[in-house]
Write a protein that binds this DNA or RNA. Sequence first.
RNA 1: GCUCGGAUGGCGGAAUGGUAUACGCGCAACACUUAAAAUGUUGUGAUCGCAAGGUCAUGUGGGUUCGAGUCCCACUCCGAGCACCA
Length: 835
Amino acid sequence: MKYLPKQIEKKWQKAWEEKNIYSAKNFSQKKKYYALVEFPYPSGDGLHTGHVRGYTAMDIIARKRRMEGHNVLYPIGWDAFGLPTENYAIQKGLHPTVITKKNTDTFRRQLKSLGFSFDWDREINTTDPQYYRWTQWIFLQLYAHGLAYKQKMFINWCPKDKIGLANEEVVDGACERCGTKVEQREKDQWMLRITAYAEKLLKGLDAVDYIEAIKLQQKNWIGKSEGTRIEFPIHYVAGSSQSPENIGANSIEIFTTRVDTIFGCTYVVVNPKHPILDANRALIKNWNAVELYRAQAEKKAGAQRREIEKEKTGVKIEGVCVINPATKKEIPLFVSDYVLAEYGTGAIMAVPAHDERDFSFAKKFNLPIIPVITAHAESTPNADEVYTGEGLVINSGKFIGMESEKAKKVIADFVHGESEVHYHLRDWVFSRQHYWGEPIPLVFCKQCEQRIKGGTFKKGIFSKGELSNPGWIALKDKQLPLELPKVKKYQPTDTGESPLAAMNAWTKTVCPVCKGEAVRETDTMPNWAGSSWYFLRYIDPQNKKALADGKKMKYWMNVDWYNGGMEHTTLHVLYSRFWNNFLYDIGVSPVAEPYKKRTSHGMILGEGGIKMSKSRGNVVNPDGVVQAYGADALRVYEMFMGPFDQSIAWDPGSIAGCSRFLNKVWDISMNKVSARTSASEDLKYKINTTIKKVSEDIESMSFNTAVSTLMIFVNTCYALEEIPKNVWEQCIKLLAPFAPFITEELWHQLGHKKSIHIDMWPRFDEKHLRSAMTPLVCQINGKKRAVVEIPAGTEKEGALKLALQDRGFATYAKDKEVIKIIFVPDKIINLIIKD
RNA sequence: GCUCGGAUGGCGGAAUGGUAUACGCGCAACACUUAAAAUGUUGUGAUCGCAAGGUCAUGUGGGUUCGAGUCCCACUCCGAGCACCA
């Protein structure tokens, strides 16, 4: 019989589906295991080789767990809302639903052909109203708890896609999707208060097992800084046309993490939008210059600011100065856009000696640079260099000689500073002006707005969100799902309004509270919404009463192992952790942290190491590989190609190699397996070490070395005349998670009636992990001079004797004075000799 | 600029401080074949040598060690992320 992948793969795919062997059982007595992969966006291009990499890896984990006796949940679904579908719909004049159906059909067929052990009964789709009903419900919960709010703000606007983008979706000032340069537009946007969860999201990282790089990225994204808020009194400068009584505000608050350097503060800077400017307008002598600068800064705000990074700009405020509360000296006040409006207090104390940005500003404006920290007591501080590290305090009155870290607290007290924490994390822009997304289930009611603003309403009828966003009323739970209306045109508009806004019949509605006239919100939710809680829906995908049953969630949560792309390690992981933490706080999710363990896989690049893209025409379609070599070969290849966490280039030649390997496995199984059960000591050693190595490598995602270990063992078998059936079966089982089709076929050929994939995972026997003979490396002065075979466990004396029996080695040692002998049992003997 | 990875044959890569180059690709020779493909066998870091064998090689320069791809210091280059966050 010949190995014909196409035939056997079709056969087993059907058989597995009929017997439903991969279905997860709620409340099974077996230990549960929840393995999760990021569900795909079903684009028109079909499955990508990158999907195959991640899905195969988790499939291997899931299959191994099943064979180890776990009740495994390995689900899949579709993250189907999104721009490409909408764009395609516009282009072809088809409805997005139709396109989505077609695309998911393709993806489903492809995924099935690859033999992933998904539980297809739990398939979900974010665009299904029965699914997004709960996405909307979660949004309303966030709203009710005051975590969603509408705000007028500048958004990043992509003129090509005609959509507002979150900061995270802007890469180098351009749209992440299409590369078009992003513009700034002012718009009312729904925001989610993720910043309220900054501390929880940070703390939660301590309790989970994510690879270090991911934890670090999350931490950096949240960006916690602990510092001090300090008041700098404003001082009227003589010669101004106004008298001091007319000063609009008498101090500026700044935030710093380095209060220990305050004696070196030689000026203060506020950002151009800072209210202190308008408040003191009457005192500012050069108001025209200030206004001009503000106008310029406004223009280059946001994404375009990166271009002016090198040259710092700013204007000195004439007529007003501030007092350094540490030195009590007058220092000048500046306005500059290198100080951000959105962070801290929008004002800083500038310490040019110990901050790079302040230093370059001071150089340009010729401001004094006073070093107040020195790295060592001996070193003389240099005013031409920036030192940003910790050290000893100098030039700072009574604090001289203290360690800077310790000085922070006492100096803070000295200047009456308040300790304060800030985060880099910003609130999440949650509005999109597009058709193909979840409608935001709110209406605007003028009557209710009046009542809220006037305070004329009964207590308890409005939620926290409704009170802080007067007029925006939540739909009642029973009104969900708020379905997308069927429209003729879903083209986005240049005005920045959602296409839904033109749907008068749909937007006109009734207020759920007062039954008066109301208008629907026409923005939809971003892509991230549906994927922020999907792991909960898999647990109970058909539930009509709740997003999932509480008991079932308690049984399955949390996700034991979540693997996905590197590109999602900040945003998607952070957003979904936020939602799940929130759902935990309101008693819906049974755990705060959704993912116990998170890993990420590297990208697959095109041949030659360039990115795969349609425009380059180097995209590899898995279908073609399956046609030519079979799904098993593709799976084995993608695991074998290189370290799982690194990006790697596609190499068609290597697939042929993996196909050859499977042919060899087939060949041995058909021709060399004997009914004999007794194996040689050497073979026992080899199969046991193979079991150990493959088992461990799978756990550490070292799939490439797991495959090569299997190749080595198979090569050994291939060289033998015959191989005992029980040994060979162990080998097939180790290969089963990697190549599920061929192993299932061979397993049945060997006479088994049940599936190999529910058989027991092989165990190794400790006593066969050592071979009888072992090579001993013989060195002279650390240089290898010979290798001799010795019985394992030989002691030093015996080993030396055996080593010296090697003639070549003995020649080196002859007539030499041996100073020292280094001996590592079963590994090495090293004679140190005098020349 | 900052943070985190990484650098090993012609290529992808392997290697708890202990035989560097496993495994695979490619290449070469041979076998099978009328022939080719497929398959199999053998060889394959560089260099000197008929050979036995020697010498040199893990980005660069130092160090620790009996012994360093692996640990330490300095540097170069590549990749990813962040980017005026005070």
